[in-house]
Nucleic acid binder design. Sequence first.
RNA 1: GCGGGGGUCGCCGAGCCAGGUCAAAGGCGCAGGCUUCAGGAGCCUGUCCCGUAGGGGUUCGUGGGUUCGAAUCCCACCCCCCGCACCA
Length: 961
Amino acid sequence: MTSLSQIENKWRKRWEEAKIFEADPDESKTKCMVTFPFSYMNGPLHVGHGFTATRVDVYARYKRMQGYNVLFPWAWHWTGETIAGASERVKAGDEILIRAFREVDGVSEEHLKKFVDPVYMAKYYTDDSRESVKRLGYSVDWRREFHTTSLYPTFSKFVEWQCERLREKGYIIKGTYPVVWCPHDQSPTGDHDRQTGEGVIPEEYILMKYKMEDGTILPSGTFRPETIYGITNIWINPDSDYVKAKVNGETWIVSKTAAGKLAEQQKTVEILENFKGKEIIGKHFTSPLSTRKMLVLPGWFVSPDNATGVVYSVPAHAPFDFLALRDLQNNPELLKDFNIDPTEVQAIKPISLISVEGFGECPAVELVDQMGVKDQHDPKAEEATKTLYKKEFHGGKLKQICEKYAGKPVSRIKDILIDDFKEKGIADSMYDLPEPVVCRCMTPCQVKLLKEQWFIKYSDPTWKQKTKETLAQAKIYPDSARQWFLNIIDWLKEWPCARRSGLGTALPWSPGWIVETLTDSTVYMAFYTINKHLKQYKITGEQLPFEVFDYIFYGKGDIQKISETTKIPTNQLQEMRNEFLYWYPVDLRVSAKELLPNHLTFFLFQHTALFPDHLPKGVGVNGMLSVEGKKMSKSKGNFVTLKTALNEFGADATRCALLLGGEGMNDPDWRRETVGDIKTKLNGFVSLAQNILDKANQPDHGHLEQWLIGVLQERTKIVTENLEQLKTRTALENALFEIWNDFRWYIRRKGHFKSDTLKSALETWLKLLSPFAPHICEELWSKLGHTDFVSLAAWPVYDETKVNIQAEETENLTKNVMDDTSNILKATKMTPKKIYYYAAAPWKWKVYLTALKKSADGNIVVGALMKELMSNPDLKAVAGKVAKFAPTLVQEINRMPEDMKQKQLQVAELNETELLETSQEFFAREFNAKVFSFQEDSQDIVDPQSKAKFAKPYRPAIYIE
RNA sequence: GCGGGGGUCGCCGAGCCAGGUCAAAGGCGCAGGCUUCAGGAGCCUGUCCCGUAGGGGUUCGUGGGUUCGAAUCCCACCCCCCGCACCA
């Protein structure tokens, strides 16, 4: 007996030999290009990759069977710093990492030694993963395979072309950008590289330049620059270290730590003097917007590590400022050390500048009272600050005192105001971290302004708008992800698209920069269309100047000239152009939802910019696969590679288990035990099919055969509709379990396997199941005597004429009668000797159908119904009975769903009597009892307990003894 | 905090948008039975509680509301997952 794994190997080999997944342009067929985002080769593919990729493959196989010319290409991502970093760590002897390679990925010592070379590592995992992809039976055209980075020169050229064209369109710009920076590593510290401070991002403080009498500037950091109109004083922490420094040519006083930060932010900083804060307390200064003299006061709450360590006070609108001021006014002795005249402090009054609904002159004062905040050390002070900030920002309007900004809402005027102030030279800005960040190397991080950084301008409003149009014309599976895309498109800002280190393609115009990983993975699907030729004709990277790509993708340029300069024959150029035009755009791209906010959205943006005539047609998003209920991770020990899964369960079981895990954006879960169960189930399917193959040889075309063929039509419809929506789980559930149940019922009713209708039904079943479990379907298909592949068989088409509602309703009735009978037996705990069934009398059917018809125009009312019934002379003859019977139907029918009514109306009067008679044998077999059936009002009725009168259409009466 | 997706009878999950076919599909697991027995598999029954006649009771994160009627609609709250940027 052949084992499942032998079967899988056999068919994989046959597919490969027959090259059935190699797709070339064919004008007679509609094309369909499906893609899976290439995965990063710093480790083996795992079952999470398998989940998404299997969905792609199922769709590909389904479409192929529908007669589409399907292209499913594959590639590998090597770009970035992670592989290089891992390689470094192997070199450094990182035990944790090495153990993960050894134990989780199953890398042998011999290979592991060579992992000090990042390229070796990438190649190793690529080979390893390719094996898994093939074993899973994915219907990939391998002729188009490649990997990224400069190590694949033709692809590298493509990326250069992509960047160059983006830059021409003005979508790549140079700029400076604040990053969280580790001074030790001399590199940006991303979230995952942090010891503490995850999620912390640099915030921009506006520095308002207040002037002391000697011209020295006190740059005071704030998020609320409009409050400059309400300043009353400045706070300095008397005990902290401050410096006087030349900053960009001006003399500033800032905290000592702030001086260090400013130096990293594109400012020249030269320290002139060190001193404690108390030395400048008591001095006077002026606001650049007025001549009023104000005091520098002691504020112990001021942190020298936050922005400049210089804080200006707006007691009318900032609870902390009000509290600190009140403390000083109430405790004049605090001022003793500073040589300040207490009366001058007493005279300070809050200055109101924002009006906000629900508050009077000084919201901060009122709120502090309302909330009962005691002093500046009260934790409620922080809460009050936040509350007021929100209220004033969203609902506040500037008052008369704010001069030309008066009357404007705070939320709308803020950015304008900042620009104005900066332009006038009275404001500057700096970045700082709202919370401390410490790098993995234990070094505290700070903000650095990176200059000469290259960005993709995803912030561009026109580009955003066009990308939204791209999104609008694309199908999104599930459609609920659409809103998320829209939000991300709005939210996206400039994206740094080049890095200094790692593997990748050099930025063509700026040596020393390498194209970043999320940038070389946005439009590469276009490269699939031509890579077949590049390989076949051994075209090198040198032969691919930008003009070649311009010709292939845009049809631009003179083909003769290009051919001359590149030595690529014109026919080859022409072929590539045709191939691109044939396959593009991408019809479907699927990824897990974690990639939606970056990769998938970039994919839409860049196609919008570079391939506006070939916009993506479909994007699928699915959940994240967890393992045994937890997020998969190497360190948690629940990392399952595809190789492991394949070794244990084989391809078909792995595929089915993954798909049955979930669909939509729900997160499926991989449980070893469940996968095993599914493998068992598939074995069961094979033996059931084998049974049919062995026994189903007699022609038989009765009522039950019509029923089976009919329900298979419905299953076909459901599976097809769901696959169309990429609802792979529901589709598989129907293709496997529901159809199985149909077969079960049929075989049960027949009591044997002999009918050859089973064989033709099995044929349909195999087709519907083959996208999911292609190997076993292929095997059984051949056992049915086919010499072709089920993978290429024509997908079943729903045929309405084969649907037999009469047969369906009959079988439904049979099931109902059975259920009712068992229910009675269960309740009475009796063992039946004789069972009597009584079909409803013809006049009841008339009443029932009349009521049903009437309910088509809305709910029926008893009175109206009766009236109509009595107009029928037949019914009028039994008026008494009708009057009793009809009302019992009203509620039942009113609640019936529309499609059920429709079906029953279509069937009209079901011949229950005949059905019960022909099924007597079946019921007798099922219940192991003698079965009799009668019509309610027949002459020879045997009805010992007078049960017959309870009969209703679709609900025969029952008596059991 | 913001944005997206969720919370259903042991487990996985359908149903919810368009309220009554809903004690709520299907699968798995479990229990009993039948077949078979080389192993596996197949088939049937049961699986919230009660019930000697096809019935009744209590359920769909929590608390309210709308309705003749709510798993489904509205409001509030709680919990889980994903993303929040120089990182693949």
